[in-house]
Amino acid sequence: MRGADLRDAHLIGVDLRDADLRGARLEGANLEGADLSGARLDDAQLNGAMLTNTELSGTDLRRADLREAVVINAYSPDVRTEGMQFAGADLTGSHLIYGGAP
């Protein structure tokens, strides 16, 4: 699924554990309650995406674009966030920025 175009897709509760989504286009996608643990989302476009209650443990979000995304209550231990863009994102309860791994 590397580089896949999933813009505005409805992926509620989908199981994408360990998926290779590097460079994927997920702008405006609804990933509410999805399991993205261990997924490779480096360089992915997630601006405006809905990631509420999403499992993000061990996810690679390096250089991902999460501007204007909604990431409320996402479980995110050991997430990699170097270079991630998140201006305007709602990160309430997710600990995405200060709870991530190096």
Rank of each mutant, 00 (worst) to 15 (best):
D8R: 10
R7Q: 05
P102A: 13
N53W: 13
D35S: 11
D5M: 01
D15I: 08
V79G: 01
A89L: 06
A9W: 07
D90W: 10
T92P: 04
D18V: 04
G23D: 07
G99K: 04
D78F: 12
T52P: 01
L36H: 02
G48R: 02
L31C: 00
D90S: 14
H95E: 14
R80N: 09
Q85W: 07
A29D: 01
A9T: 10
V71E: 05
S76Y: 08
V70H: 13
G13N: 10
L46S: 01
Y98C: 12
N47E: 05
L96N: 07
T54E: 06
D43L: 11
T59W: 04
M84S: 03
H10C: 11
T54A: 11
G23Y: 04
S37G: 13
S57R: 15
Y75P: 09
L66F: 06
A44T: 00
I97W: 07
A89H: 04
G58K: 09
P102F: 03
G88E: 14
G48M: 02
A74R: 11
G13W: 11
A87W: 15
L51D: 05
L6A: 01
S37H: 10
T52E: 11
G83N: 06
L26M: 03
E68A: 08
A64I: 01
E68K: 14
Y98Q: 14
G23I: 13
